[in-house]
Each structure stands twice: as C-alpha cells, then as structure tokens.
Amino acid sequence: MSMLIEVWGDYACFSRPEMKTERVSYDIITPSAARGLVEAIYWHPGMKYHIDRIYLLNPVRFTNIRRNEVKSTLLSSAALSAAKGGAAPVLYTSADIQQRAALVLQDVHYVIECHFTMTDKAAPGDNPGKFQDILRRRLNKGQCYHQPCFGCREFPANFREWPAGEPIPALPVTQDLGFMLYDLDYADPENIQPQFFRAKLVDGVLDCRNVEVFT
C-alpha cells in the first residue's frame, strides 16, 4: 500500500561516506534516510518499508556551519562493566570537544512515496490495512516514536500526510547525482555492507525502484 509523506525542515545533512573529517551532505535525502525517517513515525517488526520515489519541492541549497562535536565515544563494554559494579564511564567534553565544519542543506522540502510489505514477524491479527490506518493516524496527529530528523538529531523534520489527490509540485530539475548510498545490507551482522546506486533526478523526482545496487 503506497503512502505519500510530506517532510520539511530548516537544515539537513545526509553525509557522504567519502568525506572523512568534515561532513558534506548529498544533494538530496537518501533512500535509507527517508526510510529511517518514516520508521521514526511508525515502526513494527511485522512490516518493512520500501522507498519508491522522492520528490524535490525546494531548490537544492547548501550552507556552511560549524558545530561542536566530541571525538570520543563511550564503549558499550564500559557501560556493561559499570552495570556490574565497576567504575562508571566518563567523557570529559572539555578535553574531547572539537569544532568541525559541515556543508549542509538548507530549507529542505520533500514528498516521500513509500509502501510496506509484511514480514514473518507479523502477528496473526496483523494485516496491511491495520498498519496503514495506524501510520495515517500518526501522521495526522503528528505522533512519532522519536523525533524524525534529517540526517542529524539537531536537524528535526516536520511531517504530515500529503493530501490525497493533490498534485505534487516537484521542481523541473533533471540532474545526475552520481553514486548515492541506497541502504545497508545486514545479511551478515559481522560484516555489514553499504549499498550504492546511481542516483538521478528526472523532473524533480528520484526514482528508487528497481535500481541497480552496487556493494
């Protein structure tokens, strides 16, 4: 069952993996980021989202910002040790903080067209109509499991269901976006593989269906 979800916000950063130190965003939201955004609104183990198309409603605009980040992380093993009575893990931000530049998107606005399929984890009483009704109700009420974001948690995303029957005013832009992250392959949890595809905007629409995926 296909759904149209409108999302918009002030800033977005869908980081290119080839940029190691400073963050540089893709020109448009990636399929994996779009799926994560929809899952933040409603997720259930009995369903799996598939991104079909992404419609570009605002021109692609970049801006430079500088952000304070920490260079260290707290290991899960340290937290587990603390839970068993060991010393509590500590992160000294004054010593670990560092300032990084980022090339991010500004004033983003998209419509995400997606559908979902049932998985083997669905309960006997689950069905597509039930899940679609729940998702539509959460979209109309602005409910979510956690705040959807555009790549980084400090870039929150507003969302609503696109009105039924209303045409989508995608920008008349046709552009080759090069290789873009499609998704992550979790078939082998010990060796998670990124998947890429050749992305192209055609009349403001990024078609994510039946694409050739490279690993």
Rank of each mutant, 00 (worst) to 15 (best):
F150V: 05
M118N: 07
G142K: 02
P89V: 15
L80M: 14
L184F: 15
G86R: 04
G85N: 09
E166Y: 03
L105C: 01
L181W: 04
S94Q: 14
G165W: 06
S94A: 13
R198W: 03
L91Y: 02
A87W: 01
Q195I: 12
Y110V: 09
A170F: 02
P163S: 08
W162Q: 07
G142P: 09
F197R: 00
Q132I: 02
F150S: 02
D96K: 03
N191A: 15
A83Y: 05
I112A: 13
S94N: 14
G142F: 04
M118Y: 03
G165K: 09
S94V: 10
Q98N: 01
P163F: 02
A83T: 07
A157Q: 03
G178A: 09
L184K: 14
G142R: 05
A122K: 08
C149D: 00
C152I: 07
T117F: 03
L181K: 10
Q195A: 12
I97G: 06
R153W: 05
A95P: 00
A122C: 08
E113K: 14
V90E: 10
A102W: 03
P163A: 12
R198H: 11
C144E: 06
I97Q: 14
A157I: 01
D188P: 04
N127S: 14
D126N: 00
E161L: 13
D183L: 02
C114V: 10
P172I: 02
I192E: 01
D126Q: 00
F155Q: 05
P156R: 15
Q98F: 05
P167E: 08
R160Y: 04
V111C: 07
D183S: 14
F116S: 02
A102C: 07
Q106G: 07
D176C: 04
E154A: 08
R198Y: 03
A78R: 01
Q193S: 05
A83M: 10
I112V: 13
L177P: 03
E166Q: 15
E161Q: 15
D126V: 00
G125F: 14
D126W: 01
K141R: 15
Q175E: 15
D120M: 09
M180F: 06
Q147D: 09
